[in-house]
């Protein structure tokens, strides 16, 4: 199939960017969206032209590296998928497809479609862990965890940190991401000792990074490739309130 790409090109951070058009010709319909970009890039490279910069690694929806806003939607059309899980069969012959990077103050563009998501790491650094040094653990079965709690913790822990939630939100809020980690750890007995300090520290860091506020529109949930529920945001608010009241 043949499509036309309108791609955000930006040579470096803090430099102006603009859209450029690229034809994508003779693309097999079974190819993935990123394989389509590989084909276009290989063509560009053999002509000595700079390829379109985009990030990807696992190409199976688990590492959270890829992320392109495609026709206005983070990770493109389709439900519960990452960009690398999108296939060309989702498009039609002759389509013009617009590709943009995640756009958020906290995620500066590095080049073309590549952004810097280190802000997420710093939010985790602020408290998204259980403080246990190697060697300190007791026998794993000494601490039974109700299956339901464990399953719910796993639902939240499934977040891949891709940032689509931020890109989908008109306020560029990181609440879904933060709430997923807070929930994961708050739901488990191991997470209790630091439960109150953790949520406060993570929220503070989130604000410092320049992420916006949540206005309950749930666009984040709608675009989340792992279908992380906004119920986690409600839990985050509760946890935060309790922490503030009780400490």
């Amino acid at each position: 199939m043949n499509v036309t790409l309108r791609v955000w090109k930006q040579p470096a951070p803090n430099q102006p960017g603009r859209f450029e058009s690229y034809p994508a010709k003779d693309i097999p319909a079974e190819a993935s969206f990123l394989e389509m970009l590989d084909i276009v890039n290989n063509q560009l490279e053999s002509e000595g032209k700079e390829p379109i910069a985009f990030d990807s690694d696992c190409r199976e929806g688990i590492c959270g590296t890829c992320g392109i806003v495609i026709d206005g939607r983070p990770h493109g059309p389709g439900k519960a998928i990452t960009t690398c899980q999108l296939y060309m069969r989702a498009f039609n012959e002759g389509d013009t497809i617009t590709l943009e990077p995640w756009r958020a103050k906290a995620f500066p563009v590095l080049k073309d479609l590549v952004v810097d998501r280190a802000a997420f790491d710093r939010v985790i650094q602020a408290g998204g862990y259980i403080s246990i040094n190697t060697g300190n653990a007791c026998d794993a079965n000494a601490l039974p965890v109700a299956k339901l709690d464990s399953d719910r913790a796993m639902d939240a822990a499934a977040c891949i940190g891709c940032g689509a939630c931020v890109a989908a939100c008109k306020n560029a809020s990181a609440m879904l991401f933060v709430s997923a980690k807070v929930s994961h750890l708050a739901l488990l007995p191991q997470g209790q000792p630091e439960r109150r300090t953790r949520v406060v520290a993570m929220i503070e860091q989130m604000d410092k990074e320049g992420f916006g506020n949540c206005t309950n529109e749930s666009e984040c949930e709608a675009e989340c490739p792992k279908e992380i529920s906004v119920a986690n945001i409600a839990r985050l608010n509760r946890e935060f309130l309790l922490a503030k009241l009780l400490t």
Binding site: N136, L188, Q190
Partner: peptide, 9 residues
């Protein structure tokens, strides 16, 4: 043991 203590579900 270590992973469970870290909260690995």
């Amino acid at each position: 043991d270590q992973c469970v203590a870290q909260g690995v579900p």
